[in-house]
Structures are given as structure tokens and as C-alpha cells.
């Protein structure tokens, strides 16, 4: 990112429910656990990582495997 880009980054009205597509790879912070599943909340969008052994607050990279745009929920796997 150039110096100029750093000034313009984030210069927009960002949605509370960011949308993703299967295949998207992204860095995230693990925000919760539900039994064996890890949960990632990005704004009000919720992603579930089934049977994933990571702790809350861990910083990881994930790949989105399924996403429901209406609900802003989906599933992802650890990379």
C-alpha cells in the first residue's frame, strides 16, 4: 500500500454485515466458541468453523466454504 493509499483507506461507509463468497481467504480473529466449533464474527456477519481447535482471540487465516448473503452467515475452514 502506498503512502497516499493509506490516507484514503477506509474512506467509505462500511456495511455492518460484510459479504463473502465461497473460496474467499481472509485473516480474522476468532471471537467465540460453540462446543467443538469456532465462531468468527466480522461486524454482524457470523462465520462458523466446524470442529476447529483454535482459542478465542487467536489470529488465523480462514477460507469461506459457504455463505448465505441474506442471513450474513456462513461456514469457513482454517487455512
Amino acid at each position: 500500500m502506498s503512502r497516499f493509499d493509506a490516507f484514503l483507506a477506509g474512506f467509505e461507509f462500511r456495511t455492518a454485515t460484510p459479504q463473502y463468497e465461497p473460496g474467499d481467504e481472509l485473516p480474522v480473529i476468532i471471537t467465540g466458541r460453540d462446543g467443538d466449533d469456532a465462531l468468527v464474527r466480522i461486524g454482524d456477519t457470523r462465520l462458523r468453523l466446524p470442529d476447529t481447535d483454535v482459542a478465542v482471540d487467536d489470529e488465523v487465516r480462514i477460507r469461506v466454504t459457504a455463505f448465505d448473503a441474506d442471513d450474513a452467515t456462513g461456514e469457513a475452514e482454517l487455512l
Partner: peptide, 9 residues
């Protein structure tokens, strides 16, 4: 949401 940035952004 003006200026809001997520970790994934």
C-alpha cells in the same frame, strides 16, 4: 459505518 475497517479489509 463511515471509516469502519475490519481485520479482513
Amino acid at each position: 459505518g463511515f471509516g469502519r475497517e475490519y481485520v479482513s479489509d
